[in-house]
Simulated assay, not measured.
Amino acid sequence: MVTICADEISKIIRERIEQYNTEVKIVNTGTVLQVGDGIARIYYLDEVMAGELVEFEESTVGIALNLESKNVGVILMGDAKPIDGRGEISASESRLIESPAHGIISRQSVYEPLQTGLIAIDSMIPIGRGQRELIIGDRQTSKTAVATDTILNQQGQNVVCVYVAISQKASSVAQVITSLQERGAMEYTIIVAETTNSPTTLQYLAPYTGAALAEYFMYHERQTLIIYDDPSKQAQAYRQMSLLLQRPPGREAYPGDVFYLHSRLLERAAKLSSQLGEGSMTALPIVETQSGDVLAYIPTNVISITDGVIGGNRIDCFLSWFREMSR
């Protein structure tokens, strides 16, 4: 019978610890079959899950979106750099761009108003902190003006505002930023902009990025306001990616999961319970219609998800009436 004393055991354990290799080994690798239009098809990537990051050579990163039997469809991400000309952003923390929405127990009833600054809207269609209120209408019906006025009205209210511009003209985004800067609103406002020249993958991810920023402040017991301008452009970008991935079309040639695209985004707006700090995230999505058609696929989707609707034609009436009363 062989006996081993405690000193020998500790010596063996110490040697094993010293020989332990702490380097992370990537064992799930694949071969790139095709790259084009921001889409890569990879063979033999068996263990990857939908939504996971895939790292390529030369520090390129993508997101696994299509899981097929013989290959995996990955959307490639571009360079996410600050566009305000103030240099790199130094950050000590990070968040996932997508996180599950809170359940009923984690929420509480909406009881605090969020004033837009427009008397007609605040009196007739009041918005509460933690709600989702849709702003809908045709082009040039002052939808963005209502959103920017709401941001300006939060000055001194201890509310962090996030404005997400999806596939907007760079000149239009610049006008919004200028109007906010002139009135000192950029001190409490974050702009997430993916213009028409941005890759479709970044246009698809921009709303989730803005939601993650707003959630950070909400979890730190702050009141936040996020504006999505607009989700229909995100759906178009997602449709382009789906066509490149050869996904089957659904209603009006959109993929069948477009409803889930917006529901999992807007459901993150909430008024947290007292145990979680009573922070809130109020969402104002802006949807542009064609000739007042509110029965199209994307408008009906977002209408069914949100708590209320502010119509574009009524917005023009509200603003004209307000301007007349202010004279």
Rank of each mutant, 00 (worst) to 15 (best):
L96G: 15
Y111N: 15
D122R: 01
T178D: 15
I97T: 07
L96V: 13
P126W: 04
E98I: 12
I97W: 06
V173R: 05
P126F: 04
I151V: 12
S172N: 07
V146M: 02
G156N: 03
I89T: 02
E93N: 11
P126K: 10
S142G: 13
H102D: 13
Q108K: 11
A101R: 03
G87A: 05
R129C: 09
T150A: 09
Q168H: 04
I135M: 07
T116P: 07
I166R: 00
A91H: 09
V162N: 02
I135G: 08
R139Y: 11
R139L: 14
T178Q: 14
A170F: 02
S179V: 05
A120I: 08
D122W: 00
T141G: 09
I166A: 04
V164F: 00
V160L: 09
A145I: 04
G130P: 07
N153V: 01
T150F: 04
S109N: 12
M124Q: 07
V173M: 07
R139G: 15
G137D: 13
S106N: 14
R139W: 13
T178L: 12
D138E: 05
S106A: 15
S94L: 11
A174I: 00
M124N: 06
T144C: 06
A170G: 14
I151M: 05
C161A: 08
V162T: 04
S142N: 06
T144G: 11
R107A: 10
E93V: 07
